[in-house]
């Protein structure tokens, strides 16, 4: 069970407070039988009334709407959409690149806080939350549960995460897709410094399986400005021993162009695969950024 210090390390109460009243909604109907915030494709049960239809022998008598019989002297039954439990898997990229942070907290810490907030939110709205931490080529998986006490396990896993090594997002997402039986919501917290075509393929695979994907991309402000001066040695955080000695000023233009192209490609892939994309640079207050996103998402979903 994580210590109180550990909890506050990961979960800022101010950020949590910021998320009060917000909910993480799935845009698609979900599977599941438990009562939650999300619609199930399965009709019947004590779910929300949708329509009447004529009684046919074999229907349950309890479903007969007697008010309508009293008015119309016809036997009709009520049909309902049942509200089931949303399964949310938060995938946190703990590759070496996520360890970067100069002027702000590291991307991993940022993503970790995001993950904590999101899972807390999901559990609070009686949905089930799970976690996958992709670390050093391995996937540390916490199966989704709707039990509020499950948050401890998720927190512990987040605390144990140490970003290092290389991790293939695409491979892990594909693996996750095979593991998860129920359709649900995959929230990917990563800088996505990965092979984009492979990532696209993985995302398409997940979408084909009926999952919804939210990509919350974190990047450090230094990675977006590359405002370094003087001859420097850049040590790779993912591969030990890899470094580059260069004058940042001389490569800055090309570097920024590369980043620009990468982000554009990523957004295009998200658009093509129907994934929801949100950029969360680490210099933005996490709570505000997440709250803003959830509000916007909720508004958008309610309109459809």
């Amino acid at each position: 069970m994580p210590s109180p210090a550990g909890i506050t390390e990961v979960l800022n109460p101010a950020d949590l407070a910021r998320l009060n009243g917000l909910e993480l909604l799935a845009s698609r109907v979900v599977d599941g039988l438990l009562s939650g915030k999300h619609r199930s494709q399965l009709k019947g049960g004590s779910a929300e009334f949708t329509e009447h239809r004529g009684y046919v022998p074999g229907d349950e008598v309890r479903l007969i709407d007697w008010k309508v019989f009293g008015k119309s002297d016809r036997y009709v039954i009520k049909q309902y959409i049942e509200q089931t439990c949303l399964q949310v898997i938060v995938v946190v990229d703990a590759s070496g690149s996520m360890a970067f942070g100069l002027g702000t907290e590291s991307k991993f810490h940022y993503a970790r806080s995001l993950a904590a907030c999101l899972t807390r939110l999901v559990l609070r709205q009686s949905d089930s939350a799970g976690l996958a931490v992709l670390e050093n080529g391995a996937c540390n998986y916490v199966p989704p549960r709707a039990n509020p006490n499950h948050f401890q396990a998720i927190l512990q896993r987040l605390l144990d995460g140490k970003p290092s090594g290389e991790t293939s997002l695409a491979a892990h997402l594909t693996e996750l897709a095979r593991r998860i039986k129920r359709r649900g919501l995959i929230v990917l917290l990563s800088d996505c410094f990965d092979d984009l075509p492979a990532l696209k393929q993985a995302m398409q695979f997940l979408r084909a399986k009926g999952h919804e994907i939210i990509l919350l991309q974190t990047m450090a402000p230094e990675e977006l400005t590359f405002d370094f001066g003087g001859w420097s040695r850049f040590d790779c955080l993912e591969v030990d021993g890899t470094h580059l000695n260069l004058d940042p000023g001389l490569v800055r233009k090309d570097y920024l162009e590369n980043v620009r192209i990468f982000l554009a490609d990523l957004k295009r892939i998200c658009g093509e695969t129907g994934c929801d994309y949100q950029a969360l640079p680490t210099n933005q207050p996490m709570g505000d950024a997440l709250a803003y996103y959830l509000q916007r998402r909720g508004s958008r979903l309610k309109q459809t």
Partner: peptide, 8 residues
């Protein structure tokens, strides 16, 4: 200077 860099 030495900078531990992620976006290599």
């Amino acid at each position: 200077k030495r900078i531990a860099w992620g976006a290599m």
